[in-house]
Simulated assay, not measured.
Amino acid sequence: MALLDQSLFHYSLLSIYLIGPPTFISLKFLQAPYGKHHRPGWGPTISPPLAWILMESPTLWLTLLLFPYGQHFTNPKALILMSPFLFHYFHRTCIYPLRIYRNSKTTGGFPVSVAVMAFGFNLLNAYLQARWVSHYKSDYDGGLFWWRFFGGLVIVEWFGWAVMTWSWAGFGFLLYTCANLVPRACANHKWYLEKFREDYPKNRKAVIPFLC
């Protein structure tokens, strides 16, 4: 059973690295059709708030389901380390959909196809992060734990999460986030430039302030 779990974790970790490059390349040419980039032709749609709740939900229920089965379940450091992840996704799953509810009628529906892909990624990622923190991380007694935790806590996510967990799982999450969101940030920047033209600050950067 232990070998099966290790194999599942290993191949899941490999998967998050393999899906990053094709995600980045595809999003350089084709933006996911939701929010500012909403457009027809992507199949059935559902309410955006409902889509966000459903597709982000694995980060909560799967994490809470897996965590008690880890060998570090009773370790206070493991619980503390998992908390920022859960707080972020509680906001993402429960608070953010309520905030966009008022505007959802004017922004159009959310494609079910995109929501399903996001749901699949969140299943994979929640498994990796929860399983690493609760079971596979082995340096909770090391002297660098608190330095990494507080150092990561003040740095932009998910770079901060990668520092806090100090793991290939956390770093893989960071890389996939960049592969997914950097092209979208560039597309959003272009959208604002085209829509607001002279009223949009020309020196504003798409990804990193003052740099790019």
Rank of each mutant, 00 (worst) to 15 (best):
Y200F: 14
D5P: 03
F73S: 13
G143H: 13
G43E: 07
Y96M: 08
Y140G: 04
V156D: 04
Y176M: 09
G170E: 00
C186Y: 13
P33G: 04
F121R: 07
G143V: 11
L153K: 06
T93S: 08
I19A: 05
P33E: 02
Q71L: 12
G20H: 05
D5V: 14
M82E: 08
N125G: 08
S7W: 13
P76G: 11
Y34C: 07
I19V: 10
Y17D: 09
F29Q: 09
V207C: 09
L64P: 00
A115Q: 10
D141S: 08
L98G: 02
I16F: 06
F159M: 09
N203Y: 11
L4W: 14
G41N: 03
Y192T: 00
L144M: 10
E56V: 03
I100H: 03
N122Q: 12
P84A: 01
W42H: 15
S12Q: 04
I53N: 06
S15L: 15
G142K: 08
F171H: 09
G142Y: 08
T63D: 05
L98Y: 12
F150S: 01
T177D: 13
I208H: 04
A162Q: 01
S83Y: 09
F24T: 00
S83N: 05
L144V: 12
A206K: 14
V207M: 06
A206V: 08
A115E: 04
G172E: 00
T107P: 00
G41P: 05
Y176L: 14
P201M: 09
N203M: 05
S12G: 08
G152K: 03
I100A: 03
H189E: 02
E56D: 09
A115S: 15
I25N: 06
S7I: 11
W147E: 06
G70R: 04
H10A: 14
F67D: 09
D5Q: 15
F159Y: 12
F29L: 12
L79K: 12
L54I: 15
Y140A: 03
P21I: 11
V116P: 06
P111H: 03
W52P: 00
N180E: 12
I46F: 13
T165Y: 13
M1N: 01
L54M: 14
R39C: 02
H10W: 10
F24V: 03
S57Q: 05
F150Q: 05
I155E: 02
F121A: 06
R39F: 14
L8A: 07
Q31D: 02
G151R: 08
L98K: 01
H37V: 09
K28A: 11
L86I: 13
V163L: 15
M82I: 11
T165R: 12
G43S: 10
L66I: 10
Y136N: 05
Q31A: 12
R197A: 02
P68F: 00
N203P: 00
S26H: 12
F67G: 02
S57L: 13
T74Y: 14
S83P: 01
M117N: 12
N122F: 15
W166S: 07
F29E: 06
F24S: 01
G170Y: 06
P68E: 01
G70Y: 08
R92C: 07
T107D: 10
D141L: 06
K190I: 10
L211Y: 07
P22D: 07
W61S: 00
P183L: 10
K137N: 05
R204H: 06
G41V: 02
H37S: 13
K137F: 15
L50V: 04
H72E: 08
L60W: 05
T45W: 00
D199Q: 15
L174M: 14
G20A: 15
W161L: 07
Y176I: 01
